[in-house]
Amino acid sequence: MALETDTMTKDPILKVDHLSMRFGGLMAINDLSFEAYRGDITALIGPNGAGKTTVFNCITGFYKPTMGMITMRQKAGKEYLLERMSDYEVNRDAKVARTFQNIRLFSGLTVLENLLVAQHNKLMLASGYTILGLLGFPTYKAAVGESIERAKYWLDKANLTDRADDPAGDLPYGAQRRLEIARAMCTGPEFLCLDEPAAGLNPRESLALNELLRSIRKDTDTSILLIEHDMSVVMEISDHVVVLEYGQKISDGNPEFVKHDPKVIAAYLGVEDVEVEEVIEQIEEIAPGDTH
């Protein structure tokens, strides 16, 4: 109960209301509602096929949900209904950036170019929709300098400065993950969605990733929503966890609460509903007093 009152005081940046998504006969998301709070790292977890990536695609405009409402509230108070916007508008106007489960870099462009493409809209404006830039106006040059500075800042944060002039496709896997996050940050988002950022990383790369995420949280006011399978990452860095199973929310709260939620345990261990009570008892036996 204490938890409930706690959330009331928080300022939601993203509100998902009664979201449903149907693919043919398959209900990938079924009446899902949750909130992500400003300044938090919210984790979206759940077993394989629970519909996490579908939720992401609905938030970022790549899928049009069958039903429901997704509201993004910017710091300045402006609200956007994301389900009504195209994918690129979600980034450009609502300031929601994302990464992909299977990394999508511009592999033939250099690392620096990747970060410059991310600042497209700003640069486009500065270049007078190309025309002024083509004529060599100084405003454009200044804007490019600024963009390179921003790129440098994120290169440094992602520990990629040494590789700035190499093709993105040439980077090792962990560095590609970090570059993708850096690229998303270069769009200047208020809300960042990360789809399994730690998947496939070795422990050292994981560490570097955690560092990058922490610095995003510390040095910028970007809130983060992440899908993750690696529980150690989730428990370590997230403030708030939402658990999905079969497209429905089964738990919502702080990591500590979710960790001990019998429904979550059942979902991950895969037991029948009737056995949930048993599982709770077992947990109580193993670690009494740890639950509350």
Binding site: T60, S107, G108, S127
Partner: peptide, 27 residues
């Protein structure tokens, strides 16, 4: 010149990965 403009980079980015382009706010 165009290649060094944002539009030129967006063209090449489009060739590399259209979905990623859209996720970065490029129409």
């Amino acid at each position: 010149r165009l290649r060094r403009m944002p539009i030129g980079r967006a063209w090449e980015a489009l060739r590399e990965d259209e979905i990623a382009c859209r996720s970065l706010g490029i129409n």
